[in-house]
Write a protein that binds this DNA or RNA. Structure first.
Length: 992
RNA sequence: GCCGAAGUGGCGGAAUUGGUAGACGCGCUGGAUUCAAAAUCCAGUGGUAGCAAUACCGUGUGGGUUCGAUUCCCACCUUCGGUACCA
């Protein structure tokens, strides 16, 4: 009987669905385990072989934990709001909900054929109103909360108003806007409702603000910092400019310190933690206030500039100040003489895009305001400059420039010929700044002279505080997150604006506020977001009727917020929603989250380090503060699976460039495109331009070809350029590098009459290169095809076998025959299964395998356990093992990896019910006899040996083994060991 | 620039309290089976020298610690990932 994987896999997939094998309850005598894979965005392209890697690993672990007696929650869902569906809608008019539905269907089919143990009854979709009701709900909770720095947690906003009513905001230590005014209780109580709301907005954890945002004109929306890569949009690579807009913001900065501290409590990969640490960017230092020296036209107003510095110890080295061009004081302090220069500079800077500004970090530019500030200690006047190397949105947007201690300040000073005083003892600063904190003492600095960095810093902060011009301060790079998107396909905000224009939350009992129908998915002509296209009746759908009625007050219809939430809104709590996904009364029940607590294992890509994974931690901490979640970190352990890359194929097309056409006048650099392709093993490997004579030197077979073309076209070829063109990997012969000529010519009409310059053996080789797997690179390998050819079990095993889970590795279908062969060999062991006694060899092989596989799964080294299985099966085959006592446990061992075949083998052995519910085999070390090895470990007078022995040998047996061991005996050289020291585990010290 | 990860055969990769480097798989070579092919099975496969036993070399480079280093320490080179005028 052959291994008919198609039939077996279809059979068991149906069985699992029919019997709801993987449906899990929120209560059990067993311990709980929550294994989670990051849910996918269902794109139109479907899955390629790279996508399931993490799912397979997570599934193996989940199935393993189930065998180990855990109640395992292993859900799956879809992050189904997103830009591609919207873009498609803009192009075709197709409603994103429809595209999304189609894509989900396709994803589900593809996922189902891989045999995952998902509990599909718990599926969530972020774009479903039943789900986003709770995304809107969390938003409202954030709106109704403020961050109390005193208690270091989020609290209800009513607590804050109660304080305001009694004592104003003087004693309140909260995370709030910098421009929050100070008021007394009496003042607060006298405020109008609107004024109160305006003040509260400065405290709420989600708030409206005029923020300088990253505006992407091409996409018509704002982008968060993590959606911008190298100054252009992550999606589509469009230009991003800075623009001031009123936006909803998330006060994530309130949690900066706790987001840092929390990293110590979770088992996440160090690189990912580092990347979050970096992103939060904590720096310790001091803030210092420099008073601006009033100049004649300042009409009596006094100004001061607050700076943040990590080097307060160098304050006596400050010889100028630099403000960001956008700094609000710039206009106020600039002298009339300098006004035109400053205006021109500010104008020029604001025009530059983020990308331009990043592109030339080397150009030093700036302008002098004409104003001076007073040094807090020396009282010396310090010129105030502006320069775009100072960023408006970091620190206070102003720096005290210490050219001797900071390279940028140094370069700026050199460029504009500003004084560079040296305040370091015995350091040469004639060439560059001295930025080293250690290794020198402060000089020329009054009360700081002779002190080192640390003491000087402490001392100067003390002095600054004394004169009321500064204090120690911790600054974070992390900024509040923009939460508004000018898009259609996202969660609508549960917000309307009252008669005062103040934002009001829609009552919880009326949620969800559903997305209205629109005719166009583009922004409106007046520049409003796409939701502005919705007519009143569209908002007033059956679903939104109650909401609509609520909004009609005294014949006024209050306008709704027209922005939608960003992609990460829906993904920031989905992991908790799985615990109780159908709850219509709450985001999840207390019982459900008390039972499941948090995610035990989370597997997903590292690209979410500073996006989803940071925002989710933020929301989790918030919900923890407000008593909604029992844990303030949502995932105990996280693994980043590596990317499976594709192997792209390229052909080289020859393009001739001519400088001179004989029949006509001279044409410089004209390209004479050819349809001639060169096989890859010919010397040229890059997309390069080479001189004709160089080409002939490389390979003189070009001589005839070139001459022919020159004659036919009456021109002279000067240079040759090679274009590298992607070709679809399905155009190759099997898994080789040879191009199928016929298929290639048919692939694109323009290649119909292509001329292929082949190898001597008549083949045409393509060039291979490892790249990200993507449709546009024509290097996608489809899992459906693999399942068809080799089966899901082979695919699962092979994905694991490719290499370490966390590393990125290239896909190469050729190797799959190895694991497929293993499954066939495994299959062959079972038809003969009987009740015979296992031999010692059988037992040794089995228990060796149990030990290794168990260790491997616990360490997520799935690749090596596949090797272990292969060795096991080879050994058992050689041993002609037919014993049920061996083959039964083996089937269980294999089942997390290759569940379909395991179920079938289980049935063949006469069992009913799913193998997934069977206990993992128990390891018995007594069957493991390891080879004994001995090494001398020290020679100082005594002879000692380290000896590796089986784990559970009795002491007498160990002594006997030592004596019997050939190598040891050689070292002992006839002497009797005086003492044998047994170290628990496997090391024995023999003292000779 | 800064932070991080990694460099082992033709290829993917094994090998951790330092202990026989190259497990396992792919590929390749030879053989069996076959009219032939596919599939399957057997043997070989780091390099150099040798008929052979064997010897020497070998985990990016150069040093160091050690009886012993892919593993630990120092310096450097290369590749990849993140981040970047962050004061």
């Amino acid at each position: 009987m052959n291994y008919n994987f198609r039939q077996i896999e279809a059979k068991w997939q149906q069985y699992w669905t029919k019997n709801q094998t993987f449906k899990v309850e929120n209560d059990s005598d067993k311990p709980k385990f929550y294994a989670l894979s990051m849910f996918p965005y269902p794109s139109g392209a479907g899955l390629h072989v790279g996508h399931p890697l993490g799912y397979i690993a997570c599934d193996i672990y989940a199935r393993y934990k189930r065998h180990k007696g855990y109640n395992v929650l292993h859900p799956m869902g879809y992050d189904s709001f997103g830009l591609p569906a919207e873009q498609y809608a803009i192009q075709t008019g197709q409603h994103p909900a429809i595209t999304t539905e189609t894509n989900i269907k396709r994803y589900r089919e593809q996922l189902d054929q891989l045999g995952f143990s998902f509990d599909w009854s718990r599926e969530v979709r972020t774009s479903s109103p039943r789900y986003y009701k709770w995304t809107q709900w969390v938003f409202i909770q954030l709106f109704n909360s403020w961050y109390n720095n005193q208690t270091d947690k989020a609290e209800p906003i009513e607590h804050l108003t109660a304080i305001f009513e009694k004592e104003g905001n003087k004693g309140v230590n909260a995370s709030c806007d910098d421009d929050t005014p100070v008021f007394l209780a009496s003042e607060w109580n006298g405020f109008s409702e609107k004024q109160k709301q305006q003040v509260l907005l400065k405290y709420r954890l989600t708030y409206l603000a005029d923020a300088e945002v990253n505006w992407c004109p091409a996409l018509g929306t704002v982008l968060a910092n993590d959606e911008i890569v190298n100054g252009v949009s992550e999606r589509g690579g469009h230009t991003v400019i800075r623009k001031k807009m009123t936006q909803w913001m998330m006060r994530i900065t309130a949690y900066a310190q706790r987001l840092l501290d929390g990293l110590d409590t979770i088992d996440w990969p160090q690189p990912l933690k580092d990347s979050q640490t970096n992103w939060i960017g904590r720096s310790e230092g001091a803030s210092a206030i420099f008073k601006v020296i009033p100049t004649a036209p300042s009409n009596g107003e006094s100004h001061q500039i607050e700076v943040f510095t990590t080097r307060p110890d160098t304050i006596f080295g400050a010889s100028f100040m630099t403000l960001a061009p956008e700094h609000e004081l710039v206009a106020k302090i600039t002298t009339p003489a300098q006004k035109s220069e400053i205006d021109a500079y500010v104008e020029a800077t604001s025009k530059r895009s983020e990308r331009e500004r990043m592109a030339d970090v080397k150009t030093i530019s700036g302008a002098f305001t004409g104003a001076y500030a007073e040094h807090p200690f020396t009282k010396a006047p310090i010129p105030i400059w502006i320069g775009d190397y100072v960023l408006a949105n970091y620190g206070t947007g102003a720096v005290m420039a210490v050219p001797c201690g900071d390279q940028r300040d140094y370069d700026f000073a050199k460029h504009f010929d500003i004084d560079i005083p040296n305040i370091f003892d015995g350091v040469d600063i004639s060439e560059e700044a001295f930025a080293d904190k250690a290794n020198t003492l402060i000089a020329n600095s009054d009360f700081l002279n002779g002190l080192a960095y640390k003491e000087a810093t402490r001392k100067v902060i003390e002095e600054l505080e004394k004169i009321g011009q500064g204090q120690g301060k911790i600054n974070y790079r992390l900024r509040d997150a923009v939460f508004s998107r000018q898009r259609y396909w996202g969660e609508p905000f549960p917000v309307y604006y009252d008669a005062d224009g103040m934002p009001q939350m829609i009552a919880e009992e009326h949620l969800p506020l559903e997305l209205p129908e629109v005719e166009k998915y583009l922004p409106t002509e007046t520049g409003e977001p796409p939701l502005g296209n919705a007519t009143d009746w569209a908002w007033n759908t059956e679903a939104n009727k109650v909401v609509a009625n609520e909004l009609i007050d005294h014949k006024t219809v209050f306008p709704l917020e027209l922005n939608t939430m960003p992609g990460w809104a829906g993904s920031s709590q989905y992991f908790n929603r799985y615990m109780d996904p159908h709850n219509a009364a709450a985001i999840y029940s207390r019982e459900a989250i008390d039972y499941w607590q948090d995610v035990d294992l989370y597997i997903g890509g590292s690209e979410h380090a500073t996006g989803h994974l940071l925002y989710s931690r933020f929301w989790q901490k918030f919900l923890f503060d407000r008593g909604v979640a029992p844990k303030d970190e949502f995932a105990k352990k996280l693994i980043n699976q590596g990317m499976i890359t594709g192997t792209s194929a390229f052909v080289q097309r020859i393009n001739f460039e001519v400088d001179y056409v004989k029949s006509k006048s001279t044409v410089i650099g004209q390209t004479f495109g050819s349809n001639i392709f060169l096989s890859a093993t010919n010397k040229i490997k890059e997309d390069i331009v080479i001189d004709k004579s160089e080409l002939l030197k490389l390979d003189n077979s070009f001589q005839g070809l070139i001459e022919k073309i020159e004659q036919e076209n009456n021109l002279e070829i000067s240079r040759v350029r090679f274009d590298k063109i992607h070709v679809d990997i399905s155009l190759l012969e099997g898994t080789s590098d040879s191009l199928n000529e016929e298929a290639f010519k048919k692939w694109r009409p323009e290649f119909n009459d292509a001329i292929l310059l082949k190898e001597n053996d008549g083949t045409f080789k393509v060039q291979r290169e490892i790249e990200k797997m993507s449709k546009s690179k024509y290097n996608v390998v489809n899992p459906d095809q693999i399942c068809e050819d080799y089966g899901a079990d082979s695919l699962r095993l092979y994905e694991m076998f490719l290499g370490p889970l966390e590393q990125s590795k290239p896909w190469n279908t050729a190797g799959i025959t190895g694991v497929h062969g293993f499954l066939k060999k495994l299959w062959k062991l079972y038809p003969a299964v009987d009740d015979s006694e296992p031999t010692p060899d059988n037992l040794k092989t089995l228990h060796k395998t149990i030990k290794k596989v168990e260790e491997d799964i616990e360490n997520f080294s799935f690749n090596t356990s596949v090797s272990t299985f292969m060795i096991c099966v080879n050994e058992l085959t050689a041993q002609k093992c037919t014993s049920k006592a061996i083959l039964e446990p083996l089937a269980i061992l294999v089942s997390p990896y290759a569940p379909h075949i395991a179920e079938e083998l289980w049935e063949i052995m006469g069992h009913t019910g799913s193998i997934a519910n069977v206990s993992f085999p128990k390891l018995e070390v007594k069957y493991l006899v390891e080879s004994t090895k001995a090494y001398p470990i020290s020679f100082n007078g005594k002879m000692r040996f380290k000896l590796e022995l089986p784990l559970d040998m009795a002491k007498a047996d160990i002594e006997a083994a030592v004596m019997a061991h050939e190598q040891t005996a050689k070292y002992l050289d006839g002497r009797t060991p005086k003492k044998v020291i047994v170290v628990p585990g496997k090391i024995v010290n023999v003292v000779g």
